[in-house]
Structure formats: C-alpha cells, structure tokens
Simulated scan of single mutants.
Amino acid sequence: MAETVHTDTVVVGLGAMGSQALWQLARRGVPAVGVEQFAPGHDRGSSHGESRIIRTAYVEGAEYVPFVRAAWEHWADLERASGQDLLLRTGTLMAGAPGSGAVTGALTAAAHHGLAHEHLSPEQARARFPHHRFAAGEEAVVEEEGGVLLPEAAIGTAVRLAREAGARVLTEAPVTRVVPDAERPSVWVGGTEIRARRVVVTAGSWLPRALPGLPDLGIRVERRVLGWFPVTGDPAAHSGGPVFARDEADGTLWYGFPSLDGRTVKIGVHAEAPGSRFAGAQWGEPVDPDEGPRAPDAEDAARLGRLAERLAGVGTEPERMAACMYTMTPDEHFLIGHRRELPGLVLAGGFSGHGFKFASAVGAALADLAQHGRTDLPIAMFDPHRWD
C-alpha cells in the first residue's frame, strides 16, 4: 500500500557521514528521517574494519587542517553526548625518505598552522620507534594530535542518539528513487514516498546510482584489503604506539594502527605506484557496489605480508583480512554541497581513503546546509561544481 510521509529532512545512507548528519539534525530539533539500505555499522561499504586514523598535520593538504580541527571538536561532542569512548588518542607517526610526501606534507601542514610536532632524524626515528624497521635515511614526523576512531561504534552511537532525539530511522530499506525539487524533494522507499523540505544524500559507493540526474563526475569505486597480523614479539611494543603512515621509496603509501586487542596489528595500503614491489591486483580494481568487493585471497595476504615485514615483532601471515570499497573523486578530494541541476538536495561523497576522520564535522556541515543553505565550516574546496 502506498504511503506518504512528511518531514523536514531526509538523510539517505546512514554510514559515516549520514549517521552524523542525522544526529546533528535531530539534536537541533529538526524533524528528520534516516534511510539505510542495510543496518547501521554494516560491512558492505567503506565504514567498517574496527579502526580509522585521525591526524591533524595533514599530508593531503594544509587546507584540510581547519576542517579536521573542527572534527576533533565534534567527535568530543559526540563522546560527551553518548558517554562512550569513540576516539583513542595515540599520536601520529609519518615516516619516509627526506622529501617524501608523508614527511614533507606533514611538515608543511604543521608549519602552516603552528601545530606541535617533532621532526626526527633517521637515528632518532630508529631509537624512538624500534618496532618499526626503517630503511636507511628514512626520517619521521611525530605529532600528539592523532589517534584511532572506532567506526562501527561511532555510526551506531550517532544513529542511537538521533533516534532518542526524535529522528525516525528506516533500516533494511533500499531507496528506489530520489526526486529533486526546489520546494519539496522526495525519497521513495518501495511504495512509500517521503516528502521533505531537503534531502541529504550520503550514499557512499551508491551515490551515482542514487542520483541518476548527477552528471558524470568521475567517481570511481575500487577494492581495498585490510590485514590483521599477529604480534610475535613484546605486545607492549605495539599496544602503546602511535597510528602511522609510511611512504616507501617505490611510491607505496601504507598505514597501520597500534594493537587494539593485544594480539594483532592492522595494516592497509592507501596508494601505490605501478611497478611497486608491493603492488597487486587489489590496486585500481573496479567494484560494483551491489556485488561488493571480492573476498581477500592468497595474493592479498602475500602483498600485505611484505609490508608487515617492515614491523619488528609482527608475523607476515595475516590472522584475518577484510575487503572494503574506496569511493573516490578524480582529485581525491570530497564532494560536499549542492548541484544546481538537483534542486532541494545536499550531496556528500568521495570520502574514501581519508574521509572518516572528518565525519563528525561533515555531519554538522550537512545539517547546516539542509537547515540554512549555508555553513561556516570550511568546505569551499569540496564544491561539487569545482570541475565546471
């Protein structure tokens, strides 16, 4: 039976960004409906895997620093509101050869924004972090403002608080159509039409499919694999250390976490150059989001194992692995804002690889855009019209 539901704002997709947007709207007293095709905190997209890095001296560009500082504040706000620990402060280690992107990017961001940091020589890096096997000449940048976010817990907490504040949440509810309109856009879930003043679309890898009227912006969906490797040495060496990212001489940028369970260390690859000795079929492999990424295999295990060799006291055979999807724009910066040909809608996408840390601030910005049509948060560089 067809049904029509009226509300102020609909949020399509309750992953990293949508869950935060729904909570921000609900806590402001805005009538809102959140729609999720699976269940909040699911493992079918890009927001699972137990841990995400947050860092402030931002390698991807110093212009991100004000936005990540806002995100720190909003994460703290979510923790206060929920009474839960969702962010573990560990500090950050960025390492690589002199002139590498990991080192120079962190130094540039830190200098531009006056961030407290240490620039370690190769000798200092080896002495300070003996559980890392650094190549000759590799140096490091260390900052205190870094840590681990717990993605599934953060998403579930935001959705719970949104419900408690009055939001209606529809789960296991695939959206069949989003209808733009300057005055009353709508979202169809089966035979139910949800009419609203604004619709926020945070559909992750499904963003182009959710919005057939969206021009081809070059959004691509790629497979990534994460591996949890056993700690074979002193567990304390890997339990208290910082989150890290390391830039290899052959162009591989990989990252990892301190051990959260006392038994394993999680690592993954963010980027690599063709011909890298760490390269594998994972890099650039397109994914149909409805089908999801193919399961990790022996080649993935061997590839990640070669990176695990760079850590002392860590085995090279993964205890387990998980596959996820990267959803990326051509310039690998985010999409946040309006598209003129899609009136009544607010879009957010292209966050994979480095977006989760910003989710709390993105949610606040999306709530601002839906409620007021503008935001004071620094999102100008994420304009969906920037390629025009």
Rank of each mutant, 00 (worst) to 15 (best):
G355T: 10
R55L: 12
D288G: 08
G355Y: 12
D247M: 00
V10G: 02
M94D: 05
W228N: 00
S360W: 13
A281Y: 08
V231T: 00
R277T: 09
R224M: 00
L347S: 05
P185L: 03
Y64S: 03
A106Y: 14
E299A: 14
A109T: 11
I336V: 09
S47F: 00
E143R: 03
H372Y: 14
G275T: 07
F38E: 15
P215C: 07
W75K: 02
G241K: 01
G355H: 10
V199L: 15
G34M: 03
G256C: 02
S47H: 15
D43Q: 14
M1P: 13
R303G: 07
H385K: 06
G137C: 05
D300V: 00
Y326M: 07
H42Q: 12
L345W: 15
H48S: 06
A302P: 05
A127I: 12
A295C: 02
S100D: 02
A140D: 09
L107Q: 03
P242C: 01
L161M: 06
A140C: 10
R340C: 01
L170N: 01
L214D: 06
D388V: 03
R277D: 10
G190C: 08
A182H: 04
W75M: 12
G101D: 11
V179M: 04
S121I: 07
A295I: 08
D383R: 15
L260K: 01
H338G: 01
H117Q: 02
A173Y: 08
H385D: 09
V265G: 00
G363N: 10
G305D: 04
T316S: 01
E222R: 13
E50D: 13
G284N: 12
A57D: 03
P130N: 11
H42E: 11
A106T: 11
E73F: 04
R277S: 08
G353C: 01
L25W: 09
G262W: 05
Q371S: 11
G275D: 04
S352R: 07
V68L: 13
R28K: 13
E317T: 13
A39Y: 07
D43K: 10
G91S: 02
G315W: 14
G373C: 07
Q24I: 10
A70E: 15
E317H: 08
P289Q: 12
E299R: 01
T252C: 05
V10R: 04
L170G: 05
P122A: 02
S51I: 10
S186V: 09
G190H: 03
E79M: 06
I336D: 04
A32S: 15
S205F: 14
V287S: 08
A281T: 06
E145I: 06
L86Q: 08
A62N: 12
P130K: 13
Q84D: 04
A116C: 06
P286D: 13
E143D: 08
G45Y: 06
T232P: 05
T104C: 08
V187H: 10
R209G: 13
G166L: 03
S121A: 13
F134T: 10
I379Q: 09
A273Q: 09
G96V: 02
G256V: 03
G233F: 12
V346H: 02
H333V: 14
L149C: 07
R44S: 07
H132Q: 04
D234R: 05
G268N: 06
G18K: 05
A210K: 10
I267V: 12
R303L: 15
A365P: 14
Q37K: 14
P185R: 03
W75R: 03
H131V: 14
